[in-house]
Design a protein around this nucleic acid. Sequence first.
DNA 1: CATGAATGAGCCTTCATTCAT
DNA 2: AATGAATGAAGGCTCATTCAT
Lengths: 232, 232, 232, 232
Amino acid sequence: MICGLRTMQRFAAGQGVDILFRMPALQEAIISIKDKNNGKYHRILEAAVMVFAQQGFYQSTISQIAREAGVADGTIYLYFKNKDDILLQFFTYKTKQVFDLFREEVAKADNAVEKLRNLIRRHLEEFQRDKNMAIVYQAETHQNSRSAEPQIREMSKMYLDIVSEIVEQGQADGSMRKDLYLSLVKRFILGAVDETINNWLHSGGKYDLTSMVDPLIDLFIRGIGNNRADHS
Amino acid sequence: MICGLRTMQRFAAGQGVDILFRMPALQEAIISIKDKNNGKYHRILEAAVMVFAQQGFYQSTISQIAREAGVADGTIYLYFKNKDDILLQFFTYKTKQVFDLFREEVAKADNAVEKLRNLIRRHLEEFQRDKNMAIVYQAETHQNSRSAEPQIREMSKMYLDIVSEIVEQGQADGSMRKDLYLSLVKRFILGAVDETINNWLHSGGKYDLTSMVDPLIDLFIRGIGNNRADHS
Amino acid sequence: MICGLRTMQRFAAGQGVDILFRMPALQEAIISIKDKNNGKYHRILEAAVMVFAQQGFYQSTISQIAREAGVADGTIYLYFKNKDDILLQFFTYKTKQVFDLFREEVAKADNAVEKLRNLIRRHLEEFQRDKNMAIVYQAETHQNSRSAEPQIREMSKMYLDIVSEIVEQGQADGSMRKDLYLSLVKRFILGAVDETINNWLHSGGKYDLTSMVDPLIDLFIRGIGNNRADHS
Amino acid sequence: MICGLRTMQRFAAGQGVDILFRMPALQEAIISIKDKNNGKYHRILEAAVMVFAQQGFYQSTISQIAREAGVADGTIYLYFKNKDDILLQFFTYKTKQVFDLFREEVAKADNAVEKLRNLIRRHLEEFQRDKNMAIVYQAETHQNSRSAEPQIREMSKMYLDIVSEIVEQGQADGSMRKDLYLSLVKRFILGAVDETINNWLHSGGKYDLTSMVDPLIDLFIRGIGNNRADHS
DNA sequence: CATGAATGAGCCTTCATTCAT
DNA sequence: AATGAATGAAGGCTCATTCAT
């Protein structure tokens, strides 16, 4: 139609993806547009994430991504402005999609602790399901001096905000301590989860990552101190 | 000839540095060797870390490092095998040096909780002192597919081992819970500290990082839960 | 099918355009053919000249021309064999059209000097009217190693021949010196006019180019010398 | 020495060349610096001009120039900022050098007409001597939308200024008409000479270009009109 | 030991051209 | 006839590494 691919690209890079999640009704329609042309946009993005995961962003070449996606090198530039833009789209589209799932998951639970448990379970589940995404996410969120940095920072912030809300609710309903340094707590939790994933990745992803959920929650809530001993 | 330096280099990369710290008697002699040539080895390493911190490893060039160090491009190859080797030396020499300080710090305290507090305080202090090191450390430890990976893994392991020992001691003396998944606990702690540093870096290093020590220890020991059992 | 257009194209590129001007009777019929398709052939050619004028031939892209002409990239290849062919058509069609006007203009005057004046006036008028044509003409006629070179040479030759004829007539009727190196004179005149246009273009086309006609003719006829013989 | 090639490059591109001609005493010294490294700077420039002459600027590749100069592709970037810079240096260094010779030549003659004759003779001589320079000069001075445009314009201006001075002197000493449109006259002369060269180039450089000097001067001074004949 | 000019492999990106729709 | 997505060859440029001085 009139809606060419270049248009589509800007659409995806701009508000398109936002709409994708805010208006579930339209979601299918847009996906169908993207799935035209053999779903090249997604194939390229998926291929890129795989290659980035294996070799790191700077050591990956456009040719490798193209080969992996089964398209010509030049085709990539119909869907992405340049190499950096692929990483950007990864964060604005793919990662964001996952993070919005987290919010849904949190909504399912009533009390704060269960919300936190659901969040972390889903987090581990999704990163376990898409290991390449996990690798790229871990690597890029710990870089500075990245062109995509503003997007990445916003991504992390989104996650931290969810945690903040949960902890505040926990403080309100009395399940969590009130004397907490909130901005520290949220990073404390994110950091612990991140490192758990990081270790799983470096171990080669052998064990079941989701088995870590309950032990993690237990550590978050009770800490490592032998607190009962204080009163025995 | 060339042999002299190459030997020295391998020496530094291997056990040399260990000896450097474990046998203070020899320390001066070796340093004097390295300090020959106007301390070029250190100047280059320091310059490299600064450049890596600012631009990331792959976006840094040998020329930039050479200019920063005040030497010619070719000179770098007298002290380092190649670009990757500079990063490797950063981990085997510079970072390791810091990590060995941690061990000293831990030895100063008696009980487990204070050991942990000392460790983390020193960790935050040193990373705050050398921000460039902190940046490079954060970035590279979260990459995979790095040529220096084995060295980096060993580095992390060293840290995790210290934490393990402390927790085990805490369990022995009753200050820490016995029902802990040890391999999770150590990552949980490292992750939280890492993320705390990470955030400090991204915030531009405005606030005093060491002020986070006590709140962090508190979170580790007591958790975030309102453990009313304490008061029952 | 494809055959139809390809034929038309070769037709236009070959003798078709010649016929267009030599046989006015057929002119309308052929134009009507070209005006089919919303006059796409002309729209593309006009768009191309505009783009070439702004950016130069090699820095212009087919996409830019297509956008300017309001057609798809591929459509251009229905009317032109390739990018070079567009430039070729510019010379065989558009420029030639103008040059034939020159011949008409020359025919209007009786004596040689007035013929020359008419020629140059029309030259400046037409190039002033179509600045893009002027720019492309100036640029391309001073290139060598151009695929369109034979066409361009023929174009210049046509102009030089007109000048030659005028000068020869001038010599015959006594208004021009007989001791002239004819092949030099014609280039001398073309060169001076070209440079006048060139300067006008580089000045941004601010002043009225046709005001240069009489001063130019004066220079051609009388030279710059203070030929006192005139006053004896 | 300390004066590296990068420095030399900037030097040549900046005021260095000016000094080269203003301070003949230093000329040899600088040339000797440039002739170091097997005179790579000049070899590359010469090779580039040859390739540009044969194929045009945009159709020439860095690889072709490098091959012609007998250096590696990357070496070119030690002496030139980028491809455009080669063209720029051609104008600021090579062409300028020739143009300054013109000024010397003009100084040798006493009266205006002889100055003009000397100028044009030297012009034709130099361009005949270095045909590649002539081709590139002709092609690039008639382009617009060139990155090197400001330099080129300045180059032309320099030539036009010389002509202006000569004509003004001619008017002062009575050898040239006073009722001349000076800014037109100078272009009229430059244009005629340019076209003479242009034609010589397109003819393949078969005949002796300098044989055109006297006929050209004759045309400039006396014009093509049969002026004296009227009264003799 | 030190230098830095030289190298050339490799990569990102552009764009003329094709062809299925 | 018209489209424009897809192609992939080609080229400018970078930069790690080498080596003659």
